[in-house]
Simulated scan of single mutants.
Amino acid sequence: MLGCIRKYLHDSHWEEVLLLLIAEQKPKKVAKAMREILRRGSEYEEWLHRDLLFAGSCLAEEPKVYGVLMVIWCKRFWRSWLS
C-alpha cells in the first residue's frame, strides 16, 4: 500500500483508488498511510498543501484514525489556512 501511495499520491487518475485502498485498511495501516502522506513533503507543498488536503480527504472517507494523527492534521491545516 505504501508503495502505491509513494508512486501515485498526486496522480488525479489514482485519487479515488488510493482513497478506497486506505479506507479498507485496518486502523494501524491507516495510521501508517497517513504518516506517509503527511511526511511526504511533495513539491510546492508549502503553497499547494496537496499532501495535507489528501490526508484530510482520507480522514473524511473513513476516520479510523483519531488521537495524535488527527491533532497533527488539524494543527497543520489551521497553520496553513492562517498563513
Rank of each mutant, 00 (worst) to 15 (best):
E16V: 11
S12A: 13
E61V: 15
E15L: 06
E61A: 14
W14C: 11
D11V: 09
Q25I: 03
R35F: 06
D11W: 04
H10L: 06
Y8H: 13
L48E: 13
A31E: 13
V17S: 11
A31P: 00
E24R: 14
E16H: 12
G41S: 05
K64C: 07
C58H: 01
L38W: 03
M34N: 04
R50F: 06
A23D: 07
L21C: 11
H10Y: 01
W47K: 12
A23G: 08
K32E: 14
S42R: 04
Y8F: 12
F54P: 01
H10M: 01
K28T: 12
Y66L: 13
K64A: 10
R40Y: 13
S12F: 07
A23M: 05
E36D: 10
R40T: 11
R39F: 09
L38T: 06
I37P: 00
A55P: 01
E43S: 10
L48N: 10
Y8W: 10
K29E: 15
I37L: 03
A23F: 07
I22T: 03
L48F: 09
L48V: 08
G67H: 04
L9W: 00
V65R: 01
H10Q: 01
E45I: 07
L52D: 03
L20T: 12
F54R: 00
A60Y: 02
I22P: 01
L69C: 07
H13T: 11
P63G: 14
E46N: 13
R40L: 08
K7N: 07
K28Y: 10
L19C: 08
A23Q: 07
K7P: 01
E45Q: 09
L53Q: 10
R50P: 00
I22C: 04
F54D: 00
E61M: 14
M70H: 13
S12V: 09
L9Y: 01
G41Y: 05
